[in-house]
Amino acid sequence: MKQKKMVDGVLIVVLCVLVVAFLTPIFFVLLNSFKGKLYISNNPFAFPTGETFAGLTNYMNGISKTNFFGAFGWSLFITVFSVAAIILFTSMTAYYITRVKSKVTSALYYMFAFSMIVPFQMVMFTMSKLANSTHLNNPPGMVLLYLGFGAGLAIFMFSGFIKSIPLEIEEAAMIDGCNPLQTFFGVVMPILKPTAITVAILQAMWVWNDYLLPYLVIGLSTPYKTIPVAVQYLIGSYGAKDMGAMMALLVLSIIPIVIFYLTCQKYIIEGVVAGAVKG
């Protein structure tokens, strides 16, 4: 027992050092976001002093140069509606292709599963050209595209779970006079809830952070920039000139994620484990 305590003591010291190391990059941008833009490159690891302290100037610059609140709004819009659409439509599709046995449904299942291993680069050029010519290059269009891209993983996970639900429950509902829609929303959907939360978390993390799809489809010259696109836009064009605004923007981009993480930590960690095991 004494030996375990010793080992634990050493381990805790090592882990604390690691925690500091893990937090350093975030602390680093936070520190520099409060310094005048010309002072950052002098001594990047020093605390802001009376002379170098810039207050919220960098934040004001970062926000106005990228229209950060607009980007936040579009990121939120696209993420919320995409995830909602993915949960609603793919769970219905997964239910249909699991319960109706035919050549068409098994072909569909394999196609959805196949899409999971295809890298985005394979379809990015043709997909963005198609989106432009069919007027999908706007936030609602993005929701449609995310539904299409997210379908593979979501259907794979939903149908894996639906297979384990005993048919008797649904048959009883049908005998009671429910049509398939009533059966699905009244009986199946509530059982699917844990899987739906897992799918929602995995897809939300992906859509919120995705850069290439919104960049290629919506582009830099529209007001619909999402946060990753806005970050790339500011740093790509102003990076060397205004380091302060850039540091502030990086801090601002992390804040929503940290808040989301700290409030839903339990679901996120459970979702990630469940998703990894099933995926």
Partner: peptide, 17 residues
């Protein structure tokens, strides 16, 4: 049940692929 997902999937994946 299937058509909405299938339409989105066609635009995002099948046709571009």
């Amino acid at each position: 049940f299937v058509l909405p997902t299938l339409i989105a999937f066609s635009f995002a994946f099948i046709i571009p692929f």
